[in-house]
């Protein structure tokens, strides 16, 4: 399933310095909780994204530890301030060690 994982982020293209901007992120991932059973009664192994971070020019905006109780296709909405133009980097870490990444530029003017 790992190749189906598609991160999507929404970042404004421009902002003024010090302004609070809203960031929205969504990533397609089944977030298998490890509690469900398949039709044969076997437990489906847990496979979730367990960590999400958002950084701007290397500085942390938010860092989230995820548990199986986060819904399928984890969605996050939060606010950031941007002191200068730069790049937002978003990373999602899977239980199997894969890291999914996305980045967006923003211009401060």
């Amino acid at each position: 399933m790992a190749n189906d994982v598609k991160p999507r982020v929404r970042v404004p293209k421009t902002a003024s310095a010090g302004e609070a901007i809203v960031l929205k992120t969504l990533i397609s991932h089944e977030m298998e909780s490890g509690l469900r059973r398949d039709s044969d009664g076997n437990i489906i192994p847990r496979k979730i994204i367990n960590h999400f971070t958002c950084t701007f020019n290397g500085e942390v905006v938010i860092d989230v530890a995820l548990e199986p109780a986060i819904s399928t296709n984890p969605y996050f909405e939060f606010e950031a301030v941007v002191p200068e133009s730069g790049t937002f980097n978003f990373t999602w870490t899977d239980d199997d060690g894969s890291v999914y990444e996305a980045s967006e530029e923003i211009t401060v003017g």
């Binding site: 609070a20 905006v61 860092d63 989230v64 301030v81």
Partner: peptide, 13 residues
């Protein structure tokens, strides 16, 4: 457990 949010220096709120 559901999750833990840690806010960095650039979090606006």
């Amino acid at each position: 457990d559901v999750g833990t949010f840690n806010f960095g220096p650039l979090a606006a709120s």
